[in-house]
Nucleic acid binder design. Structure first.
Length: 905
RNA sequence: GAGGCUUUAGCUCAGCUGGUUUAGAGCGCUUGCUUGACAGGCAAGAGGUCAGCAGUUCAAAUCUGCUAAGCCUCACCA
């Protein structure tokens, strides 16, 4: 078969993927083998593939394929996430572009649009994963809102409610005014922001009752205006909230504000009179030491309001505009009000000054332009104390291993300071909370029941006192949906239907899963909560290893973003470099927990490597065989490569077991390119005679094919397509055979002496080649070589002869340096090449002198150690012995170099 | 503000339990290579005060402390 000299991935990738699918090689069913399970971190159902996914999913595929080729029953379960906030936002946007407002639709109408959108865009990302070669069991593709998963979510909600772990409560929560829903504390991201600190005058309202004068002359001036009226000054970053002020607070230990104690002040512009309260919460040093208290719009103020029994005035509408309760600026957005009120305060002489100020402002994780508002409302919460208690031990005790381990601390800190999880969202796209409110009179406290179905809810309701005759249509189901993560946290369990059908064959077999590959930014959102759910519902961990990837950045270290345009299109890369090339390139630069700086040169390297493999195959494929004895160099090469392969295999296994994926992949890369191609194949490659390739002996040929076979297997998990293509052509295969289901060889014993002897030979060869280059001697001109027999592995002569084009190697007691020539050392072995008339004596002397200097310096260091009595007395015997060996080696090297110098005179 | 991590060749990173020939890899760079696998290649090279300072030790890139720069996580200071 005539093969082109360039590998063309487009001719193989789709073909083999279709073959794998047709033969159901990705499909897994429970059986007697050891299971290996990975569940995909479900991407947003309407998302598209980005570089982060590429890395993450290549890793998962690599691990899955490798496990499969180690004889395990490997299963990688794919699926998508309904991503309630993100998807709902997209649907709302699309509707608004069609002139439809969400609030004009019923819930059912809106959900129809949302499902249509999901069907339209859903699953694109899963199709893209196929291009990458992902060996997911597509028959098991799941969705967080499909029937099984939805049922699981509702069951868990009901169960946790009955266990008393879910409660409904009035709390200060984080409100996203754009999405118009609450968020959990984890969904708020804080950003440093340059803002202003406004100093506002709050006049003392009961001046008639002779307030205690501010102490000190300075105070007199500061706190009294030209009309003699006293005032306090409050520093705030949020002047737009003054309409909600219900107190001013000072620290009781603050002498400079003592005079305000017990008085009342007037809120500027608003004119409302509010009390001055005292609380040690107030920082005396900050601003003026006077704090305005707005219980409805600040977490701390809310706490103050509770302890001091203050009125709460909510001045915002859900969309962030000012409500009727504000009295002023009604209907304006809060951010506009801030600018406007600053001017108005200024004009009314109520603004003392404005300072630049840097503070942290919380933004919505999903709507990064929207500042989150603290807001008081009634929501559903999951009590976390219990879950923290069950989720911490498995990680601390090492039942679950984090790679890298540094995340254990982060995990621990979070769990030890955990807050209750707000799980309700004011969204429609999601799992609707299975709570039903019963009809009560206006103003009475709400009464509700929690049940899986309306029918069960009705039965439950009728057991409530006073509701014995309630009817189904009287029940009003809670409008809210659940936080998306409230379904994702069940993923490793719900994928195997472990909630709805506990103890079923699949959950028993596949759970716990083995490895989880995910990004560290969802450690709290997802990883921690899966551990909680796993422990709660399976009484066991959901996975044994968590591999945290880094963030994919561009080569300048910037995050990839649409705005910067620095995010390559993954499918474009696959088309340009081949999926195998992209996979290899990315795998070479990942390491657990470290960000990767992506450079297209990386995948170019991967493409080049594909080509290297391809051409190595072309070489081997073109060989002919005849009956003849195996040559000596060939025999050594075969034995050596067998050892080298096993040594590397051992290293690769070790690297994989420690999740040092890039090291493992690099080791395989070097094994193939450097050891197999550059050394092994070059040694056994037959020459040409009379314009025809010399046939090769059977033993060498068969060894080579078997090495190629092993190498392809080792490479397959990283580069599935090209390895399948070549494996299929390496020997005749039957339909239905695949490299995917072959076994990666086990490590066999190897000969370390042979490996080190061969290393010496390669160094000697490199030295001869270097010499040729320096002296301008053609590689084709044969040279003769002398070698001093001490420490020289004579079995390497045939290899050296062939690779360095040396016509004869004389192994001698002492090299004959009486003729002109060049000597060199490999380790302690001395080589000499006679080169009559080919060397420049002066240049040679300079070089040898430099060499002597280097060794003398080294020797001085060694001797300094050895002459140090404390070293000889304290260091372990073998370390001292080693130093002695270094000393004698260096001494003999120097001696031989000096001798050589003599002969050059 | 509290904890944690990082700093080794031009770039990205190894260097694991202090000791193995006075530091390794990949990429990049330099030089030389056109007939038999591959220029997406082959061969040979250059390149380092291991961030700085002080300490512990017979011995430090490796352990400790301080300093500097960068990054991450958490935290209610208006």
């Amino acid at each position: 078969m005539e093969l082109p000299n360039k590998y063309d991935p487009s001719l193989t990738e789709d073909k083999w993927y279709a073959y794998w699918i047709k033969n159901k090689f990705f499909h897994s069913e429970p059986d007697g083998r050891e299971p290996y399970t990975i569940v995909i971190p479900p991407p947003n159902v309407t998302g598209v593939l980005h570089m982060g996914h590429m890395m993450n999913n290549t890793l998962q595929d690599l691990l899955t394929r490798r496990a499969r080729m180690m004889g395990k029953n490997a299963l990688w379960v794919p699926g998508t996430d309904h991503a309630s906030i993100a998807t709902e936002a997209k649907v709302v946007n699309r509707l608004s572009s069609q002139g439809i407002r969400k609030r004009d639709l019923t819930r059912e109408q809106f959900l129809e649009h949302a499902w249509a959108w999901t069907e339209e865009h859903g699953g694109i990302i899963l199709k893209q994963l196929r291009r990458l070669g992902a060996s997911c069991d597509w028959d098991r593709t799941a969705f967080t809102m499909d029937e099984t998963r939805s049922e699981s979510v509702l069951k868990v909600f009901v169960d946790l409610y009955r266990k008393g772990l879910i409660y409904r409560g009035l709390r200060m929560v984080n409100w996203d005014p754009k999405a118009q829903t609450v968020l959990s504390t984890e969904e708020v991201v804080y950003r440093d922001e340059k803002s202003k600190l406004y100093y506002l005058r709050y006049y003392v309202a009961d001046a008639g009752s002779n307030p205690v004068k501010p102490t000190g002359e300075e105070g007199e001036v500061l706190h009294r205006d030209e009309n003699g009226r006293y005032y306090a000054v409050v520093a705030t970053t949020r002047p737009e909230t003054i309409m909600g002020d219900t107190a001013m607070c000072i620290n009781p230990k603050d002498p400079k504000n003592r005079w305000l104690s017990g008085h009342k002040v007037t809120v500027p512009l608003v004119g409302r009179t509010i009390p001055v309260i005292e609380d040690r919460y107030v920082d005396v040093e900050f601003g003026t030491g006077c704090l305005k208290v707005t219980p409805a719009h600040d977490v701390n103020d809310y706490a103050l309001g509770k302890t001091h029994n203050l009125e709460t005035i909510d001045i915002f509408n859900p969309d962030g505009t000012l409500s009727e309760a504000a009295g002023l600026y009604v209907g304006m957005d809060r951010m506009d009000v801030r600018k406007r009120i600053a001017k108005d305060l200024e004009n009314s002489g109520l603004m003392e000054k404005v300072e630049d100020y840097e503070n942290k402002v919380g933004y919505s994780e999903r709507n990064p332009d929207t500042a989150v508002e603290p807001r008081l409302c009634k929501q559903w919460f999951l009590s976390m104390k219990h879950f923290a208690d069950i989720a911490l031990p498995p990680v601390l005790e090492g039942k679950i291993k984090f790679h890298p381990a540094k995340y254990v601390n982060i995990y621990r800190t979070w769990l030890e300071n955990i807050q209750d999880w707000c799980i309700s969202r004011q969204l429609w796209w999601g799992h609707r909370i299975p709570a039903y409110f019963l009809p009560v009179e206006e103003g009475r406290e709400e009464v509700f029941v929690v049940a899986l179905t309306p029918q069960e809810a009705l039965e439950e309701a009728r057991r409530q006192k006073g509701f014995e005759n309630v009817k189904l249509e009287d029940l009003r189901r809670d409008e809210d949906a659940l936080d998306t993560w409230f379904s994702s946290w069940l993923w490793p369990v719900s994928l195997f239907n472990g909630i709805n059908d506990p103890g079923n064959r699949e959950i028993e077999y596949y759970y716990p899963t083995c490895d989880l590959v995910t990004a560290p930014d969802i450690i709290f959102f997802w990883v921690a909560r899966m551990i909680m759910a796993g422990e709660e519902y399976m009484k066991d961990v959901p996975f044994r290893n968590v591999y945290f990837t880094g963030i994919v950045r561009d080569k300048l270290g910037r995050k990839m973003s649409k705005q910067l345009g620095n995010s390559p299109d993954p499918i474009g890369l696959i088309e340009k470099y081949g999926a195998d090339g992209v996979r290899l390139g990315i795998m070479l630069c990942t390491s657990a927990g470290n960000d990767i700086l992506f450079d297209e040169a990386q995948v170019e390297l991967g493409r080049n490597f594909s080509n290297k493999i391809w051409n190595a195959f072309r070489l081997v494929q073109g060989w002919t065989v005849e009956e003849k004895p195996q040559g000596e160099a060939d025999r050594i090469a075969v034995e050596w490569f067998r050892s080298e392969f096993n040594r590397t295999l051992e290293q690769v296994n070790e690297d994989f077991s420690r999740f040092r994926i890039n090291d493992a992949v690099m080791a395989i890369y070097k094994l193939f390119w450097d050891d197999f191609c550059a050394w092994y194949l070059e040694i056994v490659k037959p020459g040409f005679a009379d314009g025809r390739q010399i046939p090769m002996d059977k033993a060498t040929y068969e060894a080579t094919v078997s090495f190629f076979d092993s190498l392809l297997k080792l490479l397959h998990p990283v580069m599935p397509f090209i390895t399948e293509e070549l494996w299929q052509n390496l020997e005749p295969r039957k339909d239905g055979e695949t490299i995917m289901l072959e076994r990666i060889p086990d490590v066999e014993k190897y000969d370390e002496k042979l490996i080190s002897d061969f290393a010496l030979a390669t160094e000697a060869i490199a030295s001869v080649r270097a010499l040729r280059q320096q002296k301008n001697i053609s590689p084709k001109e044969p040279l003769r070589l002398q070698v001093r027999k001490d420490g020289y592995p004579q079995n390497m002569s045939s290899v050296i002869s062939k690779m360095a084009n040396v016509s004869s190697i004389d192994v001698v007691d002492e090299v004959d340096t009486s003729v002109a020539g060049q000597s060199f050392l490999v380790g302690t072995v001395q080589f000499f090449i006679p080169l009559e008339g080919m060397i420049d004596v002066e240049e040679e002397r300079t070089k040898i002198l430099a060499e002597i200097q280097r060794y003398e310096g080294f020797l001085r260091g060694v001797e300094a150690k050895l002459s140090n009595e404390r070293f000889v007395a304290n260091a372990p015997a073998q370390v001292v012995e080693l130093e002695r060996k270094k000393q004698s080696d260096a001494t003999s090297k120097i001696a031989s170099l000096k001798e050589r110098l003599e002969t050059l005179k």
